[in-house]
Write a protein that binds this DNA or RNA. Sequence first.
DNA 1: TTGTAAGCGTTATCAT
DNA 2: ATGATAACGCTTACAA
Lengths: 353, 353
Amino acid sequence: MEKKEPIKITIYDVAKAAGVSKSTVSRYLSGRFHELSENTKRKIQEVIEQLNYKPNHMARGLKGNKSFLIGAIVADITNPYTTAILRGAEDVCKENGYALLICNTDNNPQKEKEYISMLQAHRIDGLIIQTTGGTNPFLEELFNDGNTPIVLVDRKVPELSFDLVGIDNQQATYKAVSYLQSQHYERIAWFTEPVTDISVRKERFHAFQEALKLTDVHHPSLEDIYVADLKKDDELEMCLENFLGKTQSQSRAIFCANSVILLKVILALQSKGMRVPEDVALIGFDNPEWASAVYSGITTIEQPTSEIGKSCAELIIKRINGTPMLPQTLSYHASLIKRGSTPSVKKHFHKEE
Amino acid sequence: MEKKEPIKITIYDVAKAAGVSKSTVSRYLSGRFHELSENTKRKIQEVIEQLNYKPNHMARGLKGNKSFLIGAIVADITNPYTTAILRGAEDVCKENGYALLICNTDNNPQKEKEYISMLQAHRIDGLIIQTTGGTNPFLEELFNDGNTPIVLVDRKVPELSFDLVGIDNQQATYKAVSYLQSQHYERIAWFTEPVTDISVRKERFHAFQEALKLTDVHHPSLEDIYVADLKKDDELEMCLENFLGKTQSQSRAIFCANSVILLKVILALQSKGMRVPEDVALIGFDNPEWASAVYSGITTIEQPTSEIGKSCAELIIKRINGTPMLPQTLSYHASLIKRGSTPSVKKHFHKEE
DNA sequence: TTGTAAGCGTTATCAT
DNA sequence: ATGATAACGCTTACAA
């Protein structure tokens, strides 16, 4: 079995068939129709159609120093929050003739670094990245030497003055805490994955503590902080036991720092036979599609994911086009979606009586 | 503000700095170390490191007729089933030096066609596609003229002899139906999105009917077929009312053809105040992460998504490398994950007494 | 072991 | 309005 050679139609073939020169065809391809006679224009059009010619992006890119490729490096392509953003970005990219190279880092800086390098080799025209925070020098180099525009999504890198698109995590966290307090929850546990260098986790964590202090500088829940590495089997369970053991059931809530840990908490609660909201209330960041289907709905903080994705792509494309703009941060407001998992404690008592 | 020109380090810069010729550097880059003296090898290595040189994939590709790009066209990047597959594929691609161009069609053949064209322009080395079934001529052309290997995921195209990776939908459907029957469900409704040309939907739908006929050629549930376009607001609700209206609650189940419609059904049931499994049992295709969190768990048919994704990438890469293989279909077996949404009807009665 | 030169498919600069 | 030609960064005969 021999390896068949692909049929390669080049601009030269088109030129030949249309009885013109490469340059003329190139003019057509670049849409400079005013430099063409109506006749040749039509002829070229026909030939392209008939030969099914597709311009070669690699050749074009080599010459013009442009790949029509935009990189998207994300932590977890499996996370619905991430895909919602990608979906928004993808739409905008497509409209503008760019294709999206999607890279999954698993929150591993090493992988992130490798991908940055790979994307550099592909000469991407721009990069959208949800960074681990552990590859700053490489991003800087890509940005400075390669002059490749970079937009950070979701996660900041304070040291770098790149564009950023995300939400106001402090505002969102405050809103949720103050809502819980208005529902009369006295103990609010903070459940998070290891904070590390990930800015979102830091911001939310910090905001949570600040929000509590606003009420009481010695708020008991300042002790109700639980960090669980979800890769380790029983860490989360231990945290849960700890919190549930030391609080009483009437006015306690668990606040999950993202939807991944939220789901794990739900599963762990179920395996313990704990009811929501009867035994413990629940609130979480992100608003996965299933949040309304579990229990009588789970109260969540919703981010405008599609808008975030679109804005990333729009920003990157503007930068690619050389639009002069100062580095900017685009911070959307998140909204609180109130559902059954966080009833008013008083009402709740009432209902049970 | 001027547009700064990127610093572009080429193979020539490396050659100059190392005091050798481009060809020598190229030899180094291609890993043909036996053609190099230890000394120049070391020197080149140093210079590359120091200049932070990254080979240009576009130039390489233009010359070698290879882009190191693999296209992935999927129906909905927002569907957890899809992302799980992509995740698997992505890993394998990365290991082999390929980057993944991800394209979302929204099940729209027009978009699919546009993406095929775009990927063609990028001269992708291979394509993984979950097709709408509405772009066959374009796929054929890509395959034949462009000699680009194509692997179909999930959805078949009977007319085309491409590789396919997916599951045995008939076997999976049979398994589920026979399980429901062993649990003594008498009426089983089939809920699906519009079937159109999408092979998976056709196969499952067909298999469902066949499975019923195996028990009784006039099985009453042959009438319990509901097709709902989820984009239209109340279609699903109507279907549900229809089915719930004409059956009694003790031994009826709803079988959802995928996880998207499954979630919609759950939400609709909740808005009607219907309990699962008390008022109606529930089973669905795919096994989204939340399936175990809703109700006392939802019985689902799980596909080995990660394996499917990996296999796609492995197949494509083998083909790219010219490994001679006949067109092949890789059919995985799906497994039934039994959960609380489909209790045995008899046991269930017992429990309620 | 290394260098020279042609060519991959485009676009852009000159001519004409 | 159109054509010839160089150049983009790399690989690969072919020479040396």
